[in-house]
Amino acid sequence: MLRVENLSKNWKEFRLKEVSFKVGSGEYFIILGPSGAGKTLLLETIAGIFKPDLGRIFLEGRDITNEPPERRGIAYIPQNYGLFMHMTAYENIAFGLKLRKFQREKIREEVEKIAGILEISDLLGRNVKKLSGGEQQRVAIARALAVKPKILLLDEPFSNLDPNLKGRLMREMKNWRKELEFTAIHVTHSFEESIVLGDRVGILINGEMKQVGEIREVFSKPENEDVAKFLGHENILEGVADGRSLNINGIRIELPQKACGKIRIVIPPESILISKNPLVTSARNNFRAIIHGIEELGAIIKLKLSIGENLLSAYLTKASFVDMNLSEGEEVFISFKATSIHIFE
């Protein structure tokens, strides 16, 4: 559907470096990255507002790199929605249809249809200035989808909304997608939005697309340290490998596959088992650890552990934490499977 190849662009303090990815038809593609990564620049370059310095963009096989935005068939919703404040909600939604020279009746029909789906039929006559943030966002989505774009670009669509509204709109977005079957690229720095809405994700850090893949895949198996760090994987350890085992500051960790020389691994905190007694398990990686920090994260407890000089984090449910009656300074037994470890090249 959309193919971006080696896209590079310098603009003000932002830069994109040889960004490549594909978005399939009907897919909800998330571009996830910290602020300042160039996410908006990437979106606006795809929309045609900026010309790339290098690289190509293909839409349905057609090279659109030099097409002006009005001939791309790509709709764009900026972070503040970019509504036309001098128009009513109806006029906003009808804007693109009018440009396409539809009959007046046809326009009315289309606007009412999309407004019905987005539940803004009652707002159509209102000046958009007077609408709430959530209502404005619905109008912006309706306006973009009314022209039946080949692809919809959303820049941080939920960042200006309060958390309750955000949750509701995310659920509704899934329904709208089912009903209207659009392809979307959604830029965000929120993991929650990525996991709830995304089919696939591209991690954009410092203008580079660090990893592209299925959401689960990327979140559980970051391919490099930048992605792992950004995704909040804390247990990144460095050591020297010889075959199936890794030596890190005096402890030996069994690896899922052979490796050689200096490597980095990540041990997902949720894969670490904790017990007050020595564990009887098939896992080869069993260690004694000292608890030197306990942090409450809602229903989950994060333990900070040390094995010798190595620091690790592990998660426990609150129930099992209370059950085990753990406290700081205490010694516990930890265990994790070799197969849960990811190795970075």
């Binding site: 507002i49 970019g82 509504l83 404040m85 440009l99």
Partner: peptide
């Protein structure tokens, strides 16, 4: 805001159309 003009472009308006229907009225 230039973003508003960008949106109008993506909805199918040429530069001059954007000027007369969006920028000038605003």
């Amino acid at each position: 805001e230039e973003k508003v003009e960008f949106v109008a472009r993506t909805l199918g308006a040429t530069k001059s159309k954007v000027f007369f229907t969006i920028t000038l009225p605003l």
